[in-house]
Design a protein around this nucleic acid. Sequence first.
DNA 1: CCGCGCGATGTTTACGTAAACATCTCCTCC
DNA 2: GGAGGAGATGTTTACGTAAACATCGCGCGG
Lengths: 358, 358
Amino acid sequence: MDTADRTPANVSGGGRRRPRAGARSQTASMADVARLAGVSSQTVSRVSNGYAGVTEETRQQVLAAMKELGYRPNSAARALKRGEFRTIGVITFSLSTTGNVRTLEAIANSAAHEGYAVTLLPVAVPTQDEVRGAFSRLEELAVDAVIVIMEVHLLDAATIALPPHVQVVVVDSDAGDRYTVVDTDQAGGSRAAVRHLLDLGHATVWHLGGPDGSFAAQRRADAWRAALIEADRTPPPLVRGDWSAESGYRAGLVLADREDCTAVFAANDQMALGLLRALNERGRSVPEDVSVIGFDDIPEAGSFLPPLTTLHQDFAEVGRLCVENVLRKMRHQGAERGTTLVPTRLVVRESTAPPPSS
Amino acid sequence: MDTADRTPANVSGGGRRRPRAGARSQTASMADVARLAGVSSQTVSRVSNGYAGVTEETRQQVLAAMKELGYRPNSAARALKRGEFRTIGVITFSLSTTGNVRTLEAIANSAAHEGYAVTLLPVAVPTQDEVRGAFSRLEELAVDAVIVIMEVHLLDAATIALPPHVQVVVVDSDAGDRYTVVDTDQAGGSRAAVRHLLDLGHATVWHLGGPDGSFAAQRRADAWRAALIEADRTPPPLVRGDWSAESGYRAGLVLADREDCTAVFAANDQMALGLLRALNERGRSVPEDVSVIGFDDIPEAGSFLPPLTTLHQDFAEVGRLCVENVLRKMRHQGAERGTTLVPTRLVVRESTAPPPSS
DNA sequence: CCGCGCGATGTTTACGTAAACATCTCCTCC
DNA sequence: GGAGGAGATGTTTACGTAAACATCGCGCGG
């Protein structure tokens, strides 16, 4: 079956290398560089890794050879040898929410700064099986650590497949007792939102909450209720949306008809946007008749009608802390736990005002 | 220094393996699985890769051993052996624009579907050096191909460091003669926008364009002008923004004062949002006095005041095509070039109407 | 003036996998 | 019943790198 082996034109000792003809891209290896520079491959390795004990002269020779051959270290071999990939895996259910994206961006930047790459693994449908599958793939992938950006608590189910040595940091979860968690101070922000509205003179504050199953939504709602009770107000019934502007609009149509509703705290800016539209449609002015406050401070919030008062989240800081924590855990092999909270900042624009004088 | 080695209860022959004590996480290797299952490591490899010629009985034994040891293939070794990483690198300047993010998400999903991971490498500041640095790092990273999502034409500068065997697909560029390019049909969408407004009876259409240096902005502006000329209208002067809602607001303040401006085509939805705010502030009703059309169809567009008429971009398709193209190029090693365009769809909502009867 | 020690470099080996090749075992067919 | 063959499994080797160890040469102190 075989045709005659096309023996490569090998002449004597050094003259091998080049048998990998065909489609394969030939990349220069250390051996190639070593041969050209007239040194051993180990010396090339030393130069490549900035090891100290190399004569400047030798160094220059090696560097020249590298340049001539366009040498690039093979990261697979490097990873195999070193036992690490210098890569952080990020698992997220969706890139469609502002927070996830901004956090991811910050993670990528921080990781790059630390010399780590970021490998992405979105899971479209957050069912239990999907998560397990995702982790399973992540293990097989080349990652040293994992950051989970998730809103629903499917992590536990996923844990099963998590290899014991991969460190995990979680965003947006209350599992601080079992994992290292980094998150925005949801409770503090929500309290600030309620306080702001009460300080303006509103009798109480309604809440347009996020979907069931989201920890962020849960915490924002809890803190809203707690802040009201703390101020001796009766919390109105919770109205739920699903984070989308459309859901905010639908909820808004209901709220607009309630004369006693003069202040609404929306759990995110998108829902606040929908809310504004509904109120406008029903002829209730913001902020004259109804005050609206959001959460997130998306870049567009200042251009809403009217510009939205909201709570600014520092996603960059969240991302940075994720990377910092996960790398530290990796290096110290420690099983640190606990939650790190990043404070929010109240941004007052034009959607909040004192209630209409009754 | 060492305490007594806790030698695992290994009896007889196979009893080595375990010297890698200390911090290192011990992962079971093929050899471990082979030993436990009583087969050769090659057989384990065959099972692991779903090779056909393995008895069902042997297969089950191996699978059981894998499970018991929690075996996970070492992707570094695998990549080294196979010469491929099953990873696609994505380089992008920013995740702050809707288009980039949505495209990235689609790429990640498509790639996952094909069994490829996506490694991210954002470049914060798009200077020439940054790009070169990015590519340089990407080469050292474990990627088989690269997809570039960029708005500014810094790719040429970057090419220098691009290793010859890495295939590249570009989003949002006019370099179709040198690269494989996938993009939204910017021109077609813009033409549709202008047509829609002219059909409603507007004498002409103003354009709130994107920033200088963006190909997408350039093409949208060119097509806008061409469509007007084609219809024998005089294009008004181009007004520029920077994609942000804030810049749309500033531009809107200028446009609002021009009585002859009855229709504006904004190059993206965010700027359209700012425009709406400016018009509202200056007492010009939309769509009664001025019609506004956007581009992108971001999820919030339907909740603007009024709901925005815009051009829907199919980012999912763009991402899918990127992956499809780059993988095909990789496999065929072909130097295919040319541009693939993904059509847009006009979504008519409430921000456009016939001009005020003069 | 000899040997010790240290700095520079070379040699060996292992990382975990999988292709290529080698065996080994049945089963079939004449 | 023996040759031939196909299918199942084992053995060898190489992928590119870097740690561990070996060697070589030179300067310095006793």
